[in-house]
Simulated assay, not measured.
Amino acid sequence: MNLYMIKIYLYRLLLLFLTGLNFSCGNPPEKSHDIEYSIRNFGPEDVPALDALQGKKLNLTALLNPNAILWTGKYLVVGERKVLDYHLHVVDPNSERLINTTGKDGFGPGEIVAAYQLQRGKSVNECWVYDHTQKLIALFDLESSSDLYQKAFKQPQSMYLAVDMLWNSDSTLICQLADGDEKFQIYDTLGNQLSTYGTWSQMLEDRSPPPNVVSSVHQGKSTISPDYRKYVKVGLLRDYIEILDLPSGKITSVHGPEHNIPEFEVDYSAGYPMAQFTDMSRSHYYKDVVAGEKYIYALYFGKSMDAYFQEGETAREIYVFDYAGSLVKTYTLDHALFSLAVDEKNKRFFGISSDKDPNVVIFDYND
């Protein structure tokens, strides 16, 4: 047996082992949804006239490499990409001041090494941080004098392949898996898989690529609505939005405006299948997304990577969808962003600018 075949064998053996753990350490899934899956299409001609917004860029000198932003209802939480000491900054957008810095960097008790994904807690003074490196989701008290998290959920072995985790109740999480055809999954905190929704194979007419390759082609950000009833995922490399209604299990997939699927090949050089993208100037589409009470706010770029490298800036448009999948409003911004937060009550957009000196930008908007 040559080295290539040995790698393939070991990869398959690992997947079988992890899958076995998933079912031996917990209960089998209660429900695998035979769901209603519908597709809505729109094109450039369906995009409403853009409403131009002027933003105010803050000058918060503590921000070094801001990567993510969250509105808790009281504070802005800014996550850093690379840090020297701390991962989180707490900002009061009304006074435009830095209130607190927390999230100590490290592998010790109460410390994190990444602020990959942010989620609101039960209180406006709380924030959950997904640290994908340590496989945990940690709760921070934003007004605490401590720079450590208050508590954390550590992924058990049966959830080893889970990524992009978000709470969808006090005791369950919704996530995706690094491999497998099932698209979205719900686990309890013991690591039992409770429900699955949709499949990656349904995303392409060609059913031959392995599921992990298809999911890689459809990579992008995810979010959950404040009432935990709607889960939304947007595509970075393909212009699509998946809207999962959790009570019914129905998925609405919104395709557009370009209807582009990136060119790719299945590469086995690492010993297991991976997506190898063949068009180096491929476009990027939805850079970020926020699921609000009534609407979905998607940060849209829609340009090739060549444009990004030439201009050094990313998304300047926000597409607003209702939960039926209709595009109802669009905005154009005078500052390019790569991360988005929304204050629906006071009609404000917050973002992280994508210029040479990234910082928080605040926009006021009208419906």
Rank of each mutant, 00 (worst) to 15 (best):
M274W: 01
Q185P: 00
K356I: 04
S269Y: 01
S304M: 11
D306L: 06
Y4L: 01
T278G: 14
K347N: 15
V342T: 01
L246Q: 02
F42H: 12
R238H: 12
A291L: 05
N100T: 03
E143V: 10
N346F: 02
Y268E: 09
G256V: 03
S145W: 04
T330W: 14
A68T: 08
K303C: 08
Y240P: 07
T278M: 05
G55L: 06
S304Q: 08
E313F: 02
G106Q: 02
V113I: 13
L76T: 05
K7V: 05
H218I: 06
Y297S: 08
V214W: 05
L194M: 07
H87M: 08
D334W: 13
D334S: 12
A341Y: 01
T19N: 15
Q157T: 00
I296C: 07
I296A: 06
E344Q: 09
L327N: 03
I8T: 05
A341I: 01
N260S: 15
V320H: 12
Y297E: 03
Y130R: 13
G249R: 09
H218A: 15
D367S: 12
G351V: 07
S354Y: 01
L88H: 04
F264L: 05
L142H: 12
P211Y: 10
M203K: 10
F363L: 02
S304I: 10
V232Y: 04
T278E: 12
Y295R: 09
N94I: 06
E311C: 05
S215L: 11
S354C: 09
E36S: 07
E242P: 04
S283N: 15
R97K: 15
Q150C: 15
Y286C: 07
V289S: 08
A336L: 15
G110N: 07
T133H: 12
F301R: 13
L84P: 00
F301M: 09
L84E: 08
V328I: 14
Y323E: 04
D267E: 13
K82C: 07
F140Y: 14
Q54T: 14
Y9N: 09
V213R: 11
K230D: 01
Q157A: 11
Y300D: 06
F184K: 02
S283I: 12
D164K: 02
S195T: 03
K74H: 07
A115G: 05
G235K: 09
K347R: 12
G26D: 14
G198P: 06
K135Y: 08
S269P: 09
W200Q: 09
Y297K: 05
T199V: 08
I224H: 06
L118D: 09
Q155Y: 11
Y297C: 03
K151C: 04
S353C: 11
F17G: 02
L13F: 00
D267C: 09
Q193Y: 01
L84Q: 04
R238G: 11
D343P: 00
F349H: 00
L3N: 05
E313R: 14
V232K: 07
Q54L: 10
V129R: 10
W128C: 02
L161K: 07
V360G: 07
F277Y: 13
K31W: 08
L13T: 03
T332R: 15
Y149P: 00
K135F: 11
T189H: 06
D288G: 14
S24T: 14
K221D: 03
V342R: 04
L148A: 13
S304V: 11
S222F: 00
P211A: 15
V217A: 07
